[in-house]
Each structure stands twice: as C-alpha cells, then as structure tokens.
Amino acid sequence: MKTALQLQQRIVAFIGGARDDFDALALEVFAFQFERNAAYRAFCERKDRTPDRVAHWTEIPAVPASAFKQLPLTCFPPDDAVTEFRTSGTTQPCSGRHLFKTLDLYDAAITPNFNAHLFPDGAKMPLLSLVPDDPHSSLAYMIRKLGARCVERLETVEQPVCLLGTAFGFLKLFDDGISLRLPPGSRAMETGGFKGRTREIAKTELYEMFEKHLGIPPTHVVNEYGMTELSTQFYDETLYVGHQSDVKHSPAWARVRVIDPQTDEEAAPGVHGLLRIYDLANLWSVMCLQTEDLGVREDDGFVLFGRAPGAMPRGCSLNAEALLSA
C-alpha cells in the first residue's frame, strides 16, 4: 500500500506541475492496476500484454468504456469506495459506475486544467452553474469543487461571469428565449453534447446562440469533454489561443490517441477514429480507456466529434439502438 500511496503522491505532484516522465509513470500505474484488478489482469493476459511485455505507454491495453457497466473496475475493495459516479444511461438500460478510493487525484486534476483553458488571461470572475446538483454526477462534483454557485436562472450582472452548463441545458435556456448582454469578458463552458436528447444542433449554431442570447461571442465559449469513467477533463483551446477552435490538448498527466477502428491501429493524420484516453489520475480504477467517441488528431491535439452512433442501417434492417429504443 505504501508504494501505491507513493505513486499517488507522485502523480499528484505531476499534476501540480512537478517534472516527471509520463511514460515511466504510466508503466508503473499499469503494473499496479494489473496486480490489483483481477478482471483487468485477465483481459491483459488474454491479449498477451502483461507488464513484462509492455515497454511503452501506447502498448497498455485499453478497457472499453462499457466494462464500467459490467463490474466495479477498482484496484481496491469496492466496499471501501468513498464516492461513486454514474454514467447517465442514454439508450443503454444500465449505467456505468466509477468508484473512488480517494478523490485526491480527481480533485487535483480539476482546477489546473480548468483554469488553463477558461482563464488563460488570469481573469477572476464568479462561476455560475446551470447544472443541477446530483451526488452521482461527476460533472456536478467538478462544478462544486470549482466553487461555482448553482443558479436556477440568469439575470443581468455588472461584472463578467463564467457560466458552466451542459449544451442541452444552454439550448433549453435559448429556446426559452433568454436575452441578456453579459459584460465583455464573460465566458461559458459547455459540455455533454446531446446524447439521447430530442433536439440536436450543430456546435456552430449553438455558439451563435450564445452570442445572440447572452452576448458571449464564440471566442469565449469552451467545450469541455469529460467522462464519468475518467478523472481528467479536456477543453477546447479557444480562449488559450484567442480564436474559436475545436482542438483539445491533453494536460501533462494524460494522453489521447485516435484509433482507426478499421485497422485497430493508431489512425493516420486526418483519419477519423475512436479516442483512446490514458489518464494517470485514474490510478485506482483503470488508466487506459477505450471510448466510443469519434475524433481526429489535429497537430498535437485532437478534435472531438462525439459518440459514434450505432452503425446506421441503410434501409429496412434495424440496428441495436433503433430496436431497443423502439
């Protein structure tokens, strides 16, 4: 246990800005998780990727996100969990569970990354959240930790504010006809997409509505990509680079690869694929997650397209999603 805590402290320090080697840390985390998590170990053995055969972080086996729906993926007795976050089941009947032995890593990972992408200018302003509180929502937890104030509705303010909400929540606000001119410098973080919602719109259309309804230009709206199964969030570089951009970068303690599902190999530049995320802050669950989200590599970052829809049948056949939702 001492080694695990030392590893945790080392990762916390890395997140806090200490110099360290991602690859070396990743291999240590992998060896730790291989030893502590029987289901993961069995999976790695099946793939013949055991710690003695893995020489680089890119070779670490990725756990499919759906595995969180099947069993608690922990490196500790599940009964010892201090917190449980759940995925919002959309079309799937059961939700996934991410159990935490400690929130130290989760907490450490929230603020530096958020600040780097929402306040690269060092601005200080109140955070207002439109996300309903929910003890099992990782998003709600993150927003609490950031010290945001939950508001039911928005009103005119004198000083700039930073709004936090889901894309769907903001859209509802716009559909309800809100019309404010928030002070210049105000900004917004939107997240979550439209999974399973009745109304979907394009990102550009949504961002135009931020400007029209709230006076926040697209250069001040940032998309956040987070998952219940992870401990680290990813953000558009928009405010950081000073113009609207869909590119996200990993913080030092995480990596994102794009895997071409046609080959199961890393996608060539410009080729779309499924995002595979390596998150050292996921020390007590699984570090390497195979998401069901499509994206593409862009320079040294990535662009997220969102959840890959079930293969859409071209005609009279029916896919799983359609059948189960019928």
Binding site: A38, A39, A42, F43, E45, R46, K47, A62, V63, P64, S66, A67, Q70, I259, D260, P261, Q262, D264, H272, G273, L274, Q290, E292, L294, A308, P309, G310, A311, M312, N319
Partner: peptide, 24 residues
C-alpha cells in the same frame, strides 16, 4: 466496405465482449 461509424460500432462491440470474456 465499412463506414467509420460501422467500423467503430463493430470495434466497440468486440472490445466490450473481449473484456468480459476474459473473466466471465
């Protein structure tokens, strides 16, 4: 030929069952 979405759907299905099959 598969579209990217079709390939992703198969890949996701295969990965999910491969993980489960290792210990179930």
């Amino acid at each position: 030929a598969l579209t990217m979405e079709e390939a992703a759907a198969i890949s996701t299905t295969r990965n999910g069952y491969e993980f489960r099959s290792a210990s179930d």
